[in-house]
Write a protein that binds this DNA or RNA. Structure first.
Length: 488
RNA sequence: GGCCCCUUGGUCAAGUGGUUAAGACACCGCCCUUUCACGGCGGUAUCAGGGGUUCGAACCCCCUAGGGGUCACCA
């Protein structure tokens, strides 16, 4: 249990949270959820949600990735109060543009003994590790002041390392995990400033969070055990430490995180295949967090009211596509006919075989049968793939029908329809079928089932017999019936 | 491997010493629409294992097992 739920106070200052992704590609579902929680926590407390781009690793930077992040966040409705493209008092919001500020803090830390220059070559470090060392041996900390000054003056390449005590323990209170205690001996003198002058994440992160007034740091659990290192930096500089909220990842299965590399879809991919942004958000918020109430379907706005740190899960959660689909279907049902039509149109337009049909009408049938918008494509399959359907579909235990029944029923039914049906409107279809059933000793349901199957060649169709007949039109209806009769 | 964290049905999960251990997805059954689907109702199924503590443990303690994270001039 969280030992610190009471410390979710705001220190009389406004809550400020941030989402700090690296521009290494698109924003995946896991990252988006982290952003969600940081957003919700800020909004719940009337605070600010900030976007910061962490691009100190020039190697991994991907062109255009920032825009993807901005767009995804906007599309998801996670509006940040400050960020690279919206500005704010604490800018710039891109780390590579903040280079100037890190050096001075590093120098101050060196002065205070919290860090030191290190001239060790990459080769020496490698050799050390090959020799079994698990962390840096503080070799350069032992250099004399004079020597350091001299080598610095000579412009020797060097990094700045953090100086961490080798004994004792460091502990802090995480708002979801409670007290975390780490032996200082486990902590390495990590690099703060790289030899190219750029800060590492470890350092930039701390300095930026401080400079930007971030008082609640919300991030993945991969930082749970390195947080003491960051606290040593705050302490070394005499800065007030933030509260920490670490969150477990979304898993693809019990052993693997959801990740791009393994082909797990991005937010954008989900949207493209017809998941509604609101439904995706709703689902991922619910995955790893639960409200006090039993509500499972809610808007972002409602989630802002309901959000509590206590509801965050301490264990990873497995992504369940089935449940997302179910939720998405709920959202689709709530769409107006026009909205659904608009969303379905791009998919429908790609289908040659339905180009002569009344798409508006089709959509009214389709809307309650889609889990995702893309489902409309498959639901329309019966319209073209008709000729060779499996005749065994006529076998129904419930309605006591089979191929023989169909063979007996269909020819007279076709005759009846050809003779009597209202060719324009199909207005009397129901009467005809009912009359036919009575006259021939069938139940109406039997006739309806066989008729619908003969008409569509499909067990599941986007509507009942009447709707399907109306959709396809009288001519197609009659010709399909004739075709099936021939096959029987 | 060292260290940190986690462990309630197939999945998401509620639960904070006394509950018939919620709810949702999925699954199964029934009903509705005299046809599928949608919808409605109901059902199957969970406290990782073992020791304690206690009158009483899913809840507290210990051990074991399993899983995740972390040990970079990546973030």
């Amino acid at each position: 249990m969280s030992t610190n739920s009471k410390t979710t106070k705001t220190n009389n200052s406004i809550v400020r949270t941030r989402f700090a992704p690296s521009p290494t590609g698109y924003l995946h579902i896991g990252g988006l959820r982290t952003a969600c929680y940081a957003y919700l926590f800020a909004k719940k407390h009337g605070g600010k949600f900030i976007l910061r781009i962490e691009d100190t690793d020039l190697e991994r930077k991907v062109a255009g990735a920032e825009e993807v992040i901005y767009n995804t966040l906007k599309q998801a409705g996670l509006h940040y109060d400050e960020g690279p493209d919206v500005g704010g008092e604490y800018g710039p919001y891109i780390q590579s543009e903040r280079k100037a500020s890190y050096g001075q803090y590093a120098q101050q830390l060196v002065k205070n003994g919290g860090a030191y220059p290190c001239f060790c070559s990459v080769e020496r470090l490698e050799k050390m590790r090959e020799g079994g060392a698990t962390k840096y041996d503080k070799h350069c900390l032992k250099l004399s002041k004079d020597e350091v000054a001299k080598r610095l003056a000579n412009g020797e390449p060097h990094v700045i390392r953090q100086n961490i005590p080798q004994t004792g323990t460091t502990e802090y209170a995480d708002l979801v995990f409670g007290t975390i205690t780490i032996d200082n001996d486990e902590l390495e003198d990590g690099v703060l400033i790289k030899s190219d002058g750029m800060p590492t994440y470890n350092f930039a992160n701390v300095i930026d969070d401080y400079l930007m007034g971030i008082n609640y740091v919300m991030r993945g659990t991969e930082y749970l055990s390195s947080t003491p290192k960051y606290n040593h930096i705050y302490d070394g500089l005499g800065l007030e430490k933030p509260q920490y909220i670490h969150m477990q990842p979304i898993m693809r299965d019990s052993k693997h995180k959801l990740s791009k590399r393994d082909g797990d879809a991005s937010f954008d991919d989900f949207v493209k295949s017809g998941y509604l942004p609101d439904a995706i958000l709703n689902y991922i918020i619910l995955l790893g967090w639960s409200p006090k109430s039993n509500d499972e379907k809610f808007t972002l706005k409602q989630a802002e009211e309901m959000f509590t740190v206590e509801g965050l899960s301490k264990s990873p959660s497995i992504f369940d596509l089935e449940k997302l689909k179910w939720l998405n279907a709920q959202y689709i049902k709530e769409l107006s006919e026009e909205e659904f039509y608009k969303l379905a149109t791009p998919f429908l337009n790609s289908l040659e075989h339905i180009k002569d049909l009344d798409k508006k009408y089709l959509c009214t049938l389709l809307q309650s049968r889609c889990s995702i918008i893309r489902d409309v494509v498959e639901l329309c399959d019966f319209i073209k793939a008709f000729d060779n359907f499996d005749l065994n579909l006529f076998i129904s235990e419930k309605w006591k029908t089979d191929i023989t029944v169909a063979k007996a029923m269909l020819p007279p039914l076709l005759k009846e329809l050809t003779a009597k049906v209202d060719m324009e409107e199909l207005s009397n279809l129901s009467e005809i079928i009912e009359g036919f059933a009575i006259a021939n000793g069938y139940k109406k349901g039997q006739v309806l089932l066989v008729f619908r199957l003969a008409l569509t060649g499909s067990l599941v169709t986007p509507g009942g017999a009447h709707e399907m007949a109306k959709l396809l039109g009288t001519e197609v209806m009659l010709s399909r019936l004739a075709t099936v009769i021939q096959r029987l």
